[in-house]
Design a protein around this nucleic acid. Structure first.
Lengths: 144, 144
DNA sequence: CCAACTGCTTGGGTGTTATCATACAGACAA
DNA sequence: TTGTCTGTATGATAACACCCAAGCAGTTGG
């Protein structure tokens, strides 16, 4: 099963976190039309939430045309599921970036601090890749 | 007045967005002990939310020891308001970064895309500064 | 057919979030 | 003193988020 995860302390409703993740998976092509989603009970157990919460997320996505339900079979990614264009993806990323910079600024962190944190996390996920950017960032840090 | 802002569509409760912003301001030193906060009615009007919502945020922060109230005068940053250590700030930044990378990955964006978006937003806010990182990023893009 | 899997439905309960209206009380300046 | 700013307190309302239980109905494979 695709890596689903929810943070019950984030303040964002669980059903919306689930919706977002599925939408991202679909728009990125990780999930494509005809793809079967985890069953309601299965995903509910996996995330240790109530099945009603999954139903709410799935029903909402069905209403948006992202997925479809077949009684007795399961939920599947819709044929006409909207894919993100490159521009939409870029815009989404910039929205995230804007919020992150705003919060970072409010807590007194510099722009370099943000880039640095991002690069550290990136490296933690992907220890093998080494970007020029990382080297530059490390160079900046060393200079201080 | 300090730039307060809330996004009523983010899913995060408004009173918690307000709390977070004040905590960030205090921990970064932008707001310091004795600093007067916007009055309840003033901030409520500014953000076009109900005064009760502001009261909830302020009361919660008072309970956490971040701010104090003086009847008839207003709310003020507490003398013993907890400041973030550098490590705590770094950890907070990395949590943000982790979430952003996770979401970006789910929507099929690469790590470079994220750094790129962040740099674009950074530049939009601060058009005068030019980081080496930006130049490197632009170099990477040109190479494609 | 039967068991085990699917989605679907109903109804109840709890706590949170946010709205609105109204009133009281301290501080302070004109 | 009076007006206007401040915080405080109350109760009512509505919507939402989440949980829980129990059962109905379609699909599929042994």
């Amino acid at each position: 099963m695709l890596p689903f995860q929810v943070d019950s302390h984030s303040g964002v409703p669980v059903y919306r976190q689930i919706m977002d993740q599925i939408k991202y998976y679909v728009s990125s092509g990780v999930m494509f039309p005809e793809c079967k989603l985890p069953s309601i009970r299965e995903l509910a157990q996996f995330l240790t939430v109530n099945p009603s919460t999954i139903i709410k997320a799935y029903k909402e996505l069905e209403h948006e045309g992202v997925i479809e339900s077949l009684k007795g079979k399961g939920f599947f990614v819709s044929e006409s599921a909207p894919k993100m264009t490159d521009d939409e993806r870029r815009e989404a990323l910039r929205r995230m970036a804007r919020r992150m910079l705003s919060e970072a600024h409010q807590m007194g962190a510099s722009e370099i601090d943000v880039l640095q944190a991002l690069d550290e996390e990136r490296l933690a996920i992907n220890p093998n890749s080494d970007l020029i950017v990382s080297l530059v960032l490390r160079g900046i840090r060393r200079d201080r």
